[in-house]
Design a protein around this nucleic acid. Structure first.
Length: 926
RNA sequence: GCCGGAGUGGCGGAACAGGCAGACGCGCGCGACUCAAAAUCGCGUGGGCUUGGCCCAUGUGGGUUCGAUUCCCACCUCCGGCACCA
């Protein structure tokens, strides 16, 4: 009797043996090609989650695969050990964050070992070790020297629950919640430290050197948000420069007002006394509004005139200055020129507040519209219009005419002679013309003209006396509405010297024109903001800065690093940073003048730690630099990185930025930290929802290992879904992989029936088995390369099914059988390393299976001899015939036409067409 | 609103340079073993019908094609990201 499969016994045994033998130790070996395989490091929360297993075990399988393929693979692990939970635990339970963190790390190391992964533990790095964060400080100083770390006062996002500021990337979604705890953030005006990631905005948009998922690339691209346009300098009447950024310099002549962000620094100065009160009220309300997250979804525009005017530099037009919260201080210059005719938001604003609209770009349709109001024209006009070929419709006596822009003059001439005295009509198209019966044709081409037209209309018609602008007057005619606003790139009109410039040249020529006159220049603007790294918390890396009353802001000298986090601190129940009250930490001497000074008490965002951990892993004990350059020269950069998508615009952006700075510091000689990236999906609870303690749908890996063994858990995680998709956990489904392992156990260990063992297999039996063996190697190899772990396991299961059959035939025990078993075990080694090793060694093969070469397949052996020729009639399968692989087209057609099913449908007729797809099918078209 | 991704049996999922839809697994049904149950083994398992055969089936409706889960158009639903970005 074969002993049963007891993973609880064999798994710890092999884990210890592998570790004792150091078989996963990766050392620099210039003779072998290296492969740096990295998976995101966990936060030591206390317990390994099934999500960690889901992230790490398929990565481990692939790392093992590369190893078997002959690469020198480095697969390290560490802990992202600074952060809030440790500090919250301290406040709540009185345990020091250090103690809490290191105890958790100890526990998680044990749990990680139970995975049976090939981590090289001698490379482990823990980010809260002073020997780690010392280098965070060192990098900070380097950044500071280069002007890449700076302190500034700014309106920043603050999480009231975490009691600290956050980077823009760490505020999520429409509700603007804290990435960590989900609490809505508030704005605060604070002095904070920033890393100047915007200096690398352009380079960060270049993804040409990395193979990353399109999804991540798109998210980063959108996050950086590059737009091209021009900076234009407007001036207040008093001469203050007001710079705006616009992507549409070609619409400059249509700027009829300016809008500043409510918190724009010039507002204070420009506001006239009679508007001061109203402006301050608006500013107060706007600030409050952003705190309430503007939850009211009505996007109704609000704003306030500040009493001042600006001069449009292209036409000297005097335009009012407003403030409104739809202009953001954080984008561009915090001020805009408003072109209501060609910007939807400005249009809405202008209509609401009665600001003039001047069209300066011809509409894309090339059409114009005109309304002749009932009673404003004499008899015979309809006939005349018809005769002249103008299309129109009658609506309540009004005539609504749609004409080609080219016919504008002809139309005006015709209509004029029919207008009754004291009336007018409009032509709205490329420009808006007013045709007065007893006066000139007037064009809405400037603010003055707009005024004059409005006044004249009001004189003639009391009904329009309440209208504040021509646009408002025209808006009343629903027929005109689609022509009053558009944002197409088209021919410029009403634009002084540039009138007539075609759409495709408009932006470029206007920009050149601005540059000549020195009132503007081409500019690129980014949505990306600098990375706010200050955190008002204890459990993080102290920022190595000292404030001296004499010398100001002074960096701590390199040789004084690390600035140690003091141990003996008093916890504040509010979560307020205890460093601020730690006298010994706070008070220091100025490194420059030796006088009394005090330390910066903010600590760094923990994303600083994870921005370069892949380098520290190489030599976690090295003290001459952040890492040993010799190790770096061999292992870097990371060849394959795996982890969750949630870091797309945080960690994954920061680490790219960091690497580019390190390159500019001369520390690395490449541009990108991770050449290839793959994002796994998420394991959901059995109810299909995100796993959470409150839902009670959490799956604990320790229990699963206890019940099924690590190999089963690994195999199931790789089998149950596509890795990049993830899906709900199924406590029934895990039985499949467990049965698979038990079947393999018996398949390999239970002796073959002597009757079969002694019998000689037929050539056919041998050929069929070997074919399956080689086909399986091929499938598994391709699946492994493609991260298709689910079909990889499926292929192994299929192989198992075939072997179970074969074991009952004389092929069992043959050479082909041995080849099959050996192959099976080798292919299982990356997925289920323990059972593979156990069976490998038990069958007398040399330890360790994890030091064997990956099997190769022979195409000739893997090749099928026959295939199922599908016979279709009109595209529907009607018959199937097994035929040799090399069958000629002629022969295939013959077989198909001879098929009973085909003959019945043909019914003596000739087929219309016969389509032959080699190796697949014949389709008879009747 | 904009930008991505996805909709396939009872369930998880296979198969897409256009060519046998449902690999593999779970579950379920029947049978064997058992006093019995579990475990295990064998067989079956998309739906329907007038069942030696035929019809319908890959979110919905169209289209291209000899042939569409795969390509094109429109729409619906779900998930993710962004959201007054000038």
């Amino acid at each position: 009797m074969t002993d049963p499969y007891v993973p609880q016994e064999i798994e710890p045994k092999w884990q210890q043996r592998w570790e004792a033998d150091g078989i996963y130790r990766a050392v620099v070996d210039p003779d072998r090609p290296k492969f740096y395989y990295l998976t995101m490091l966990p936060y030591p929360s206390g317990d390994l989650h099934i999500g960690h297993w889901y992230a790490m075990t398929p990565s481990d399988a692939q790392a093992r695969y590369y190893r078997m393929r002959g690469y020198n693979v480095l697969f390290p692990m560490g802990f992202d050990a600074f952060g809030l939970p440790a500090e919250n635990a301290a406040i709540k339970h009185g345990i020091h964050p250090r103690e809490w963190t290191y105890a958790n790390i100890e526990r998680m190391r044990r749990q990680l070992r139970s995975m049976g992964a090939m981590f090289d533990w001698e490379r482990e790095a823990v980010t809260c070790d002073p020997e780690y964060y010392r280098w965070n400080q060192w990098f900070f100083l380097k950044f500071y020297e280069r002007g890449l770390a700076y302190r500034a006062r700014a309106a920043v996002d603050f999480c009231p629950s975490c009691n600290t500021t956050l980077a823009r990337e760490q505020v999520w979604g429409e509700e603007r919640v804290c990435e960590r705890c989900g609490t809505p953030v508030v704005k605060k005006d604070l002095e904070q430290w920033f890393f100047k990631i915007t200096a690398y905005a352009e380079e960060l948009l270049d993804f040409s050197q990395i193979e990353w998922p399109e999804r991540v690339v798109t998210m980063q691209r959108n996050w950086i948000g590059r737009s091209e346009g021009a900076d234009v300098i407007f001036r207040s009447e008093e001469g203050d420069e007001i710079e705006v950024f616009t992507t549409r310099p070609d619409t400059l002549w249509g700027a009829t007002f300016m809008v500043l962000a409510p918190e724009h620094p010039l507002v204070e100065k420009l506001t006239t006394p009679e508007y001061r009160e109203a402006v301050e009220a608006y500013q107060y309300q706007a600030a409050r509004q952003s705190e309430i997250q503007r939850l009211a979804l009505d996007k109704e525009k609000t704003g306030q005139f500040i009493g001042a005017y600006a001069i449009n530099p292209v036409n000297e037009a005097r335009i009012p200055i407003w403030i409104a919260d739809y202009v953001l201080m954080t984008y561009g210059t915090g001020a805009i020129m408003a072109v209501p005719a060609h910007d939807e938001r400005d249009f809405e604003f202008a209509l609401k507040f009665g600001l003039p609209v001047i069209p300066v770009i011809a509409p894309p349709s090339g059409q114009a519209k005109s309304v002749l109001r009932a009673g404003s024209y004499r008899e015979g006009l309809t006939e005349a219009l018809r005769e002249a070929g103008f299309a129109f419709e009658e609506a309540d006596g009004d005539l609504q005419v749609t004409l080609d822009e080219a016919d504008r003059e002809r139309y005006i001439a015709l209509v004029r002679s029919y207008l009754k005295p004291g009336t007018w009509t409009e032509v709205v198209g490329a420009g808006w013309a007013f045709v007065f019966a007893d006066g000139p044709v007037m064009n809405v081409g400037s603010i003055e003209e707009e005024r004059r037209i409005l006044e004249r209309c009001q004189e003639l018609d009391p009904a329009v006396q309440a209208k504040r602008t021509v646009a408002e007057l025209l808006w009343d005619q629903a027929f005109y509405r689609d022509l009053l606003f558009h944002d197409a790139y088209e021919r410029m009109i009403n634009s002084g010297p540039l009138t007539g410039t075609p759409g495709e040249e408009a932006v470029r020529r206007t920009t050149a024109w601005l540059e000549e006159r020195e009132v503007g220049k081409a500019a690129v603007n980014y949505r990306l903001r600098d990375w706010l790294i200050s955190r008002q918390r204890y459990w993080g890396t102290p920022i190595p800065i000292v404030y001296c009353p004499e010398c100001g802001t002074v960096p701590v000298p390199e040789e004084e690093l690390p600035v140690l986090l003091p141990e003996d601190v008093d916890w504040r129940p509010t979560g307020e940073n205890p460093l601020r009250y730690h006298e010994a930490f706070l008070h220091t001497t100025c490194p420059r003048c030796g006088g009394p000074a005090h330390r910066e008490t903010d600590t760094m965002d923990t994303f600083v730690d994870s921005s370069w951990y892949q380098y520290r892993y190489l030599s976690p004990d090295y003290d001459q630099g952040p890492w040993d350059p010799e190790e770096g020269a061999y292992w870097l950069p990371v060849d394959q990185y795996t982890g969750g998508i949630e870091h797309a615009t945080m960690h994954l952006l920061y680490t790219r930025f960091f690497t580019k700075v390190l390159r500019d510091l001369g520390l690395v000689d490449f541009d990108e930290p991770m050449l290839r990236l793959y994002n796994q999906g998420t394991v959901l609870g059995e109810d299909g929802e995100k796993m959470s303690k409150s839902r009670g749908n959490v799956v604990a890996p320790d229990d699963l290992v206890e019940q099924y063994g690590a190999d089963t858990v690994r195999a199931y995680l790789m089998f149950f879904a596509r890795w990049d998709q993830g899906g709900p956990w199924d406590s029934q489904g895990i039985k499949g992989p467990r049965r698979f392992l038990e079947d393999v156990w018996r398949l390999v260990l239970e002796p073959v029936d002597p009757a079969q063992a002694e019998a000689t297999p037929t050539e056919e039996q041998v050929r069929v088995l070997r074919r399956k063996t080689h086909q399986t190697i091929k499938r598994c190899t391709e699946d492994m390369e493609a991260f298709a772990f689910n079909t990889y396991v499926a292929a192994l299961m299929e192989f198992r099914n075939v072997l179970q059959e074969a074991k009952r035939t004389p092929v069992a025990g043959s050479e082909a059988w041995e080849e099959a078993i050996e192959t099976l075990l080798l292919l299982m080694a990356p997925i289920t390393p323990h059972i593979a090793e156990e069976l490998w060694v038990r069958t007398g093969r040399p330890y360790s299976i994890h030091q064997q070469r990956w099997p190769t397949w022979d195409e000739a052996i893997a090749a099928e001899e026959t295939f199922t020729l599908v016979i279709q009639v009109n595209g529907k399968v009607r018959d199937r015939v097994e035929v040799p692989v090399g069958i000629s087209e002629e022969k295939a057609r013959e077989i198909a036409l001879a098929s009973e099913a085909v003959r019945r449908r043909l019914n003596g007729r000739e087929p219309k067409r016969v389509i032959y797809v080699p190796g697949r099918l014949v389709n008879v078209v009747v």
